[in-house]
Each structure stands twice: as structure tokens, then as C-alpha cells.
Computed example of a mutant assay.
Amino acid sequence: MNTATLNTNRLWAYLQLTRPANIVTAWADVLAGIAAAGFAGFDNPLPVAWLLLATTGLYGGGVVFNDVFDAGLDAKERPERPIPSGRATFRGATVLGSVLLTIGVFAAAQVSSLSFSIACGVAAAALLYDAYGKHHTFFGPLNMGICRGGNLLLGVSILSPMLREHWYLALIPITYIAAITAISQGEVHGGKRSTGVVALILMGVVITGLLALGWLNKSYFLAVIPFVILLTWRVLLPFIQAVGEPSAENIRTAVRSGVLSLIVLDATLSCSFAGLPYGLLVLILLPASIILAKLFAVT
């Protein structure tokens, strides 16, 4: 293998660590938060760009450190991953994760001190999850949900005063991610049906909450319904299958569908506050994420 090919493979390995398909779902979180804040991004797109860069760094850094902390375990359970396979070094991954988190916090600081504070909180929550949280049955799902809820509020922080009015929106991605994280605990060796039932109930709560939110903003309620139907189809069916037969393969399918469908969740939220066109704009990210998911691992 020549040097150019070796360098290309190494670069690809580090790119794999950032899970690009998942980063696109993080963009959707921020865009949904911006919609909830009522920010007119077409007049001043710079803060939007800074927040999208911020969430790219925060999410990318968080998932890179996930592999850093799991390097020993992956060597036994998933030796094909970049670090245990030797395609990426432990030190290199640590540097990459640190740089990405720093970029995320720096970019958020360009918007406001509130955005900076939220970004710091998200970075800390991500590292806590990577190092400790994911090993706890209850705290792990909650910890990961807080990361996603904070990411949504990062978008809301584009207009700082709106955070007081819409802080509760973080509960939706917190519950949604808690459901996905709960069921994902069996994606290597298979899971427990009881855990799957809890995850299914949590997902039902999310869908009910989205309908209630759409009803509160009645002018957009009819536009919200198709988004909710799409989310239900994409998420509930794989979850039900995973509960019926909690094999590792079914659980991985449910987790993959749940992660990518975060974009549908965010499109639904966006539609509730900004109408059908904005919701469709966010939904456009779904095909891009699906394509990237065929090239890079999601879980």
C-alpha cells in the first residue's frame, strides 16, 4: 500500500469517528430551535452559520470521544472500528475530539454569552456520557437526552429572551433520545423485552407531545399531522419489532431508524412554530443523512 492510499485510509478513519450522518441530525436540532425562537435568518444568516458550526463541533467531538473511551471495549466487541483496527490512533482521536469541542464552544460564543454557556454545558454532558453515563441503565439515557435537549436550546439561544419561553421544548428530544438510548443497550448482544417496552412507551409520549404542541399552535396543526405520521411510521414500527424480538440486529435497526428520524422530529417541531415551508426545509436534511448513513456508521 502506497503512502497516498495509506493517508487516504487514515483520513477516512478519522472521518468515520465523527459519524457525519449523525452530525446532520444535530443541524436539524439547531434549525428547529431557531424556528421556535422566531428568528428571521434570511435577514442575518451569520448567527445561524455560527450555531450550525457550533453543533458540528460539539456533536462531532462528542462522538469521537465516545470511541476514545470505548477503545478497550471495542477491541473485544467491535474490532473493525477505527481505533481498535489501528486505522486511527488513540492519541489522534483524542486530539481530534478536543479540537472539535473547542471549535463548537468558540463558534457558539460568537452568537451570545448564553449560547456559549449552553455549548459548554452540552460539551460537558457529552463527555460525562462518554466516560460514565452510558454505563448506567437509568442515567445513561437521561444523560444523552440532555445533550440533545441542550442542542435544541442552542438553536433557541439565537434570540436569548426566547429561552425563557421555550425551555420546555428540550423535554421532547430528551425523552426521544432517552428512548433510543434505552433500547440501544442491547445492540451488541441483544436486549431485554422490558427495556424495549419502556423505550416504546417513551416514544409514544414523544408523539403525543408533538401532537399537543401542534394543537397549541392551531394555525399549523394540519401541517404538523403528516410529519407526525411520518415519524410514527419510521420509528414505532422498528421499535415494535425490536420489542417483539429483541435481537441485536433488530435493536440496531431500531436505533439507526430512531437516530436518523431525529430530523423528522425536528421538522415537526419546526412546522409547529414556523409552518410547512420551514418544516420541509428541515426535512430535506433527511435524505442527506440517509445517504451518509450508507457510508458511515450511525451507532
Rank of each mutant, 00 (worst) to 15 (best):
L211C: 10
G149C: 07
P226K: 05
M162G: 03
N217P: 10
P238K: 14
R148S: 00
S219F: 12
W167F: 10
S184Y: 05
G150E: 02
A178W: 08
L152E: 00
L213D: 08
G140L: 13
G191M: 06
G196F: 05
L169P: 02
G149T: 03
Y168T: 11
N217Y: 10
S219G: 12
L169I: 01
C147Y: 01
H166E: 04
S184M: 06
L202K: 11
A170T: 02
G155I: 06
I146R: 09
L163R: 02
L202A: 06
L171C: 03
L236D: 07
L216A: 12
L230I: 05
L154F: 05
C147Q: 00
V156Q: 01
M144Q: 10
L222I: 05
G196H: 12
I180V: 14
Y220I: 00
W167D: 09
P226Q: 08
P161R: 14
L154Q: 01
G140M: 10
L216W: 08
H189P: 04
G155H: 09
E165N: 09
S194H: 14
F139L: 15
V206A: 11
L213R: 11
R234S: 05
I183T: 02
W167A: 10
T232F: 14
L171H: 04
G140Q: 11
F221Q: 07
A182K: 15
R234A: 08
S194M: 07
A212R: 15
L213Y: 04
I183Q: 03
A179E: 11
I225D: 05
V205S: 14
T195R: 15
L163I: 12
F239A: 05
V198L: 15
V156F: 01
V235S: 03
G145P: 12
V188F: 09
I201D: 13
L230F: 04
N217H: 14
A199G: 13
G145A: 06
F239S: 06
A182W: 09
L154M: 07
A179D: 05
V188I: 08
P161S: 13
A223K: 07
V156P: 01
T181A: 11
R164A: 14
Y220W: 04
A179S: 13
L154T: 02
Y176P: 01
Y176R: 05
F221M: 08
G191K: 13
I201K: 14
P141Q: 07
R234L: 11
I177T: 03
I172Q: 09
P141L: 07
Y168Q: 13
L159R: 02
N143F: 04
Q185K: 15
G140E: 07
T208W: 11
M203F: 15
I201Y: 14
G149Q: 04
G149K: 06
G196L: 05
L210A: 07
P141Y: 06
L210E: 12
L213M: 12
T181K: 04
G186I: 02
G191N: 08
I229Q: 11
S219I: 09
T181F: 00
V188A: 10
Y176M: 00
A212G: 14
L159H: 03
N217S: 12
N217I: 01
S160C: 01
I146V: 15
P238C: 14
L210S: 10
V228I: 09
G149D: 03
Y176D: 00
M162A: 08
L171Q: 05
F139Q: 12
L142I: 11
L211H: 14
K192A: 12
F139S: 07
L142F: 01
L202M: 11
V224C: 06
R148T: 00
I174C: 08
